[in-house]
Design a binder for these strands. Structure first.
Lengths: 121, 121
DNA sequence: CCGTATCCGATCCGATACTG
DNA sequence: CAGTATCGGATCGGATACGG
């Protein structure tokens, strides 16, 4: 996704921030601590390298996450939520509660662990 | 979008709820009071009838909005947020603040009114 | 280990025409 | 006024291969 040069409404930005398939789960996975690229890759079942990189890049451009990279081999990069990302996390957690509610209502509680943290795994 | 029979994670649902281009703005437009179909259509610049109907239908299937229809001509339908929709609104408002922040940071404050309520209009 | 490039099917969404 | 149906271009995302 190409990020637009100009937005005329905050909710347009919101849409661009969250519309990707993996954005909310990435924000959620980063809630407690820094994660390397491969940490994320292994904890999100079904995501491809390409998509993980791409979505992280977009989240960085919106100032939701940032990263620290070491130079030299093997490469090592840690991603983390910015303060804006932590705000985003609040919204994600509210929406997650809605998701949990929906699952309970539809008899799918067998997929839920204690905290609704069960993305594909 | 076909709503899935089974979700294995709350955040999958979240993604399906919000991924459409017009979902957040619809939730936001319904924040204060009931709106008819044409109220919504006229207050969201750029949306087509088809998309408005489609997104409202999906929001209804997820229990975010509901409607009351009168029978007889002319047709009259009012849409409103359910209690779950009001919860969703909380998340939307948090994300909206992020959008406002982003716009201010990028010198686009001329598009903002007092409350960031300016979706294309 | 981390990131880029390309190909290609699936999905999204705008335009348009039509119905009760 | 509210809702449905269809077509076609644009975008998204999975698979795969390659590079620093």
């Amino acid at each position: 996704m190409k990020i637009r040069d100009e937005y005329t409404c905050p909710l347009e930005i919101v849409h661009d921030i969250i519309k990707g398939k993996w954005k909310t789960i990435i924000v959620f996975k980063l809630r407690q601590c820094n994660k390397t690229f491969s940490d994320l890759e292994h904890s999100i079942d079904g995501i491809s390298q390409k998509m993980l990189i791409q979505q992280l890049k977009e989240l960085r451009e919106f100032g939701i996450v940032d990263k620290i990279s070491s130079t030299g081999y093997p490469l090592h990069t840690e991603y983390f939520l910015t303060s804006r990302g932590k705000k985003m996390l609040q919204a994600v957690e509210i929406m997650q509660e809605i998701g949990i509610e929906y699952m309970l209502e539809h008899g799918q509680q067998e997929f839920l662990d204690n905290k609704g943290i069960c993305y594909n795994k």
